[in-house]
Design a protein around this nucleic acid. Structure first.
Length: 193
DNA sequence: ACCGGGATGTTCT
DNA sequence: GAACATCCCGGTG
């Protein structure tokens, strides 16, 4: 089984389109709450018109251009938070959006944080903003080290990524809508839409 | 089941 | 002023 340290190396100096599918079946951890990642999307600096990093660094996306293995959290539609794992080299601006997860632990806290799910486990983490709401991830966690103990982490509990991940275009974009950089665990009921 | 629209405010043109 | 890496609710079939 890989240790957290090995996971940190896997983000570093590697493209989000490579790291993305490898993050499937890894576990997102915040306090007692844990969710297995079943759906992700890659965003790439410079070449990707769908990425926040496409037009260069701004105050909002600064974390994307920082060191790999950190959490980029952004606010959208006036009410939702979404979270990414930063990859690649310093200054590159490439990251993996965490789109959905299967709840594993701390379900009581997730339900309390997500009244909109109406007690339905399937709806706790199915969608990028739902996942953040369920895990208690918001702007105060923007930039945190994903491998340091105590905060938000992504850990490997020994379940390998799917050998043949599902793939599709990304969801909810206008620019870059044709790029097939979404991956998911096939036939998993916690994948969105 | 599917579809349409409202919420809500930050970011960038 | 428009767009936005979304979600929720209420309508209809």
């Amino acid at each position: 089984m890989a240790r957290p340290r090995d996971l940190a190396r896997s983000f570093y100096k590697r493209d989000s389109r490579v790291v993305g599918p490898e993050l499937l079946n890894k576990v997102l951890v915040h306090g007692r709450r844990r969710a297995r990642l079943v759906e992700v999307e890659a965003y790439v600096g410079g070449i990707d018109p769908g990425s926040h990093a496409y037009r260069g660094q701004t105050p909002r996306n600064a974390v994307m251009f920082g060191p790999a293995g950190h959490l980029y959290v952004y606010f959208t539609y006036g009410m939702h938070w979404c979270a990414n794992a930063v990859c690649g080299e310093l200054g590159e601006g490439t990251a993996v959006l965490l789109r959905a997860g299967e709840p594993l632990a701390g379900l009581d806290e997730m339900h309390a944080a997500r009244p909109g799910a109406k007690g339905i486990e399937r709806d706790l983490c199915r969608g990028p903003a739902r996942l953040c709401q369920a895990l208690g991830i918001d702007g105060t966690l923007n930039g945190v080290d994903l491998v340091a103990p105590g905060g938000v982490r992504i850990v490997d509990d020994g379940v390998p990524p799917p050998v043949g991940p599902g793939a599709s275009v990304r969801i909810g974009l206008s620019a870059g809508a044709d790029l097939p950089w979404r991956w998911y665990v096939p036939d998993n009921r916690y994948v969105s839409r």
